[in-house]
Simulated assay, not measured.
Amino acid sequence: MIEFINVEKVYPNGTKALENINLKIDQGEFVAVIGLSGAGKSTLIRCINRMHDITDGKLYVDETNVSNLKGKQIRRFRRRIGMIFQSFNLVTRTTVLKNVLVSFVPDNPLWRKITGLYTQEQKRKALEALDKVGILDKAYVRVDQLSGGQQQRVALARTLAQNPDIILADEPIASLDPVTSKLVMDDFKRINQELNISVIMNIHHVEVALEYADRIIGIRKGEVVFDGESAKVTDEILHEIYSGNIEELKAALEESHAHV
């Protein structure tokens, strides 16, 4: 379980990114975080794995106070939390399989890190992860020969190989075409349901969020202005989340129509 208690985040330049955040997210939930650009969506999910430190309040993941972790504790903690970025973060000049095997590097002894050698068990787990996202046949293909959607699935497989409890996704379909976006979102939904992995996704496409997520968290100016079931999101609620910025709301909805 993830729990935010009166969490605030203020950047060194004085910008208040999060204010008075109180949330509980249970294991196995699929949560979409929506809102205007700059509302604090990315900051919210990046606090969960300590990519950003909170300024005030408390943040717990399974009763662990995230702010208290130091050094190796943070690295161990992050093993349980997968992170998917819009930019994929892959090494494009090497094979798909090698990119997935990278997830095992933190656990390997120094000699394996230096030689780049992995165990048979690690290779098996990497291939299983590729199979789960439907690209096992691309295992020995160089990443730079793949489409954007295939690359995002490699990133997802790399995350699955580390056997996480939670997957954080920061705009995972922002740079993908509509057909590929649907395939990637289907992967997230299937993984969430079959493996009971919590998915917390920052997403710009409103209708995609409503279609795939069980729960919507609406952020406006760093504060939660809506938290509830996707089915209960009305036009009035969307107007409140988007703070009367009709143009950005229309753009998000239009992009969504293109992606569903």
Rank of each mutant, 00 (worst) to 15 (best):
F77C: 11
F77Q: 10
F77P: 09
R78M: 07
R79P: 01
R79W: 09
R80P: 00
R80D: 15
I81M: 12
I81H: 09
I81Y: 09
I81D: 11
G82N: 09
G82E: 07
G82Y: 08
G82F: 11
G82C: 10
M83C: 08
M83W: 05
M83G: 12
M83N: 09
I84E: 09
I84Q: 08
I84P: 12
I84A: 08
I84G: 09
Q86R: 11
Q86A: 11
Q86S: 12
Q86Y: 07
S87G: 02
F88Q: 09
N89D: 13
N89P: 01
L90F: 10
L90D: 05
L90R: 06
V91P: 00
V91L: 15
V91G: 00
V91F: 15
T92R: 06
T92M: 05
T92K: 10
R93I: 02
R93S: 15
T94V: 14
T94F: 02
T95H: 08
T95F: 06
V96I: 05
V96D: 03
V96Q: 04
V96K: 05
V96Y: 04
L97M: 12
L97K: 14
K98F: 02
N99T: 09
N99E: 08
N99L: 10
N99R: 07
V100A: 04
V100N: 04
L101G: 08
L101H: 05
V102W: 01
V102Q: 06
V102D: 03
S103Y: 05
S103R: 06
S103L: 06
F104D: 03
F104H: 12
F104T: 02
F104S: 12
V105C: 01
V105K: 12
P106E: 11
P106H: 10
D107N: 13
D107W: 00
D107V: 00
N108Q: 14
N108E: 12
N108R: 10
N108I: 01
P109R: 07
P109M: 06
P109G: 08
P109H: 08
P109L: 07
L110K: 13
L110D: 01
W111Q: 12
W111A: 09
W111K: 13
R112G: 00
I114L: 15
I114K: 08
T115H: 02
T115W: 01
T115V: 03
G116F: 02
G116R: 03
G116V: 06
G116I: 02
G116Y: 02
L117F: 14
L117S: 14
L117P: 00
L117K: 15
Y118W: 05
Y118M: 03
T119M: 10
T119L: 09
T119F: 06
Q120P: 00
Q120S: 14
E121V: 11
E121R: 13
E121D: 15
E121A: 14
Q122Y: 03
Q122V: 04
K123D: 07
R124F: 07
K125D: 07
K125R: 15
K125E: 13
K125L: 13
A126S: 13
A126M: 07
A126R: 04
A126W: 10
L127G: 00
L127R: 14
E128G: 00
E128P: 01
E128M: 12
E128A: 12
A129H: 08
L130S: 08
D131V: 00
K132G: 00
K132I: 05
V133M: 10
V133R: 05
G134R: 03
G134A: 10
G134E: 05
I135W: 05
I135T: 06
I135Y: 03
I135A: 06
I135D: 04
I135N: 04
